Simulated assay, not measured.
Amino acid sequence: MENKAVAVDWKNIFKMFATYEGTIKSFCKENNISLHQFYYHRKAAKKREISVFHAINFKEEATPSSSCSTENIKIEIGKAKIHIPSNDKVVLSNILAMIMESC
């Protein structure tokens, strides 16, 4: 009999574990998952989600030549997710001001 590898949806596994009330060991046993694989894939997932921070100079005027990136700035607070073009300093400044007021 052949031993075929089955693709595991680790993102879904970790989502299920987030609401699980037992231990990692019992979760893995109930879901027929190797404890070693659980830890390995959880560590790999955390490495992929590392945030990168870049300084933004608010003193400069936003011009096409001064904006070095067209990527979005992502702000996540709880379930709120805000995506702002990195060259839109006015919107970013206003959002940061509103966040600071609510803290």
Rank of each mutant, 00 (worst) to 15 (best):
residue 3 N to F: 02
residue 9 D to W: 00
residue 10 W to L: 01
residue 67 S to T: 10
residue 46 K to D: 09
residue 94 N to Y: 06
residue 30 E to T: 05
residue 22 G to Q: 00
residue 20 Y to N: 03
residue 52 V to L: 09
residue 12 N to C: 06
residue 77 I to M: 07
residue 92 L to T: 05
residue 58 F to R: 07
residue 75 I to G: 08
residue 70 T to C: 08
residue 83 H to K: 10
residue 9 D to A: 06
residue 24 I to D: 00
residue 70 T to E: 08
residue 91 V to C: 13
residue 22 G to C: 00
residue 86 S to E: 08
residue 42 R to K: 08
residue 13 I to P: 02
residue 86 S to I: 08
residue 49 E to G: 12
residue 82 I to M: 08
residue 29 K to N: 01
residue 61 E to H: 13
residue 95 I to W: 11
residue 45 A to I: 07
residue 13 I to V: 02
residue 60 E to T: 15
residue 61 E to N: 15
residue 80 A to S: 12
residue 85 P to C: 10
residue 100 M to A: 07
residue 82 I to A: 10
residue 35 L to I: 14
residue 46 K to F: 05
residue 101 E to D: 07
residue 100 M to K: 06
residue 73 I to C: 05
residue 51 S to T: 10
residue 53 F to D: 15
residue 50 I to R: 08
residue 35 L to R: 10
residue 15 K to P: 04
residue 95 I to L: 13
residue 48 R to M: 11
residue 53 F to W: 12
residue 7 A to Q: 03
residue 6 V to S: 04
residue 57 N to M: 07
residue 2 E to Q: 03
residue 53 F to A: 12
residue 67 S to I: 10
residue 93 S to L: 15
residue 25 K to Q: 01
residue 21 E to D: 02
residue 70 T to P: 09
residue 81 K to E: 12
residue 68 C to Y: 10
residue 44 A to F: 04
residue 35 L to M: 11
residue 61 E to G: 12
residue 79 K to P: 13
residue 53 F to S: 14
residue 2 E to A: 02
residue 88 D to L: 07
residue 40 Y to R: 11
residue 33 I to G: 06
residue 3 N to C: 05
residue 30 E to V: 03
residue 49 E to M: 14
residue 33 I to H: 06
residue 17 F to S: 01
residue 30 E to A: 03
residue 85 P to V: 09
residue 40 Y to M: 15
residue 92 L to Y: 06
residue 93 S to M: 14
residue 93 S to V: 13
residue 55 A to M: 15
residue 100 M to E: 05
residue 23 T to C: 00
residue 78 G to M: 13
residue 78 G to E: 13
residue 30 E to P: 04
residue 84 I to L: 01
residue 44 A to W: 04
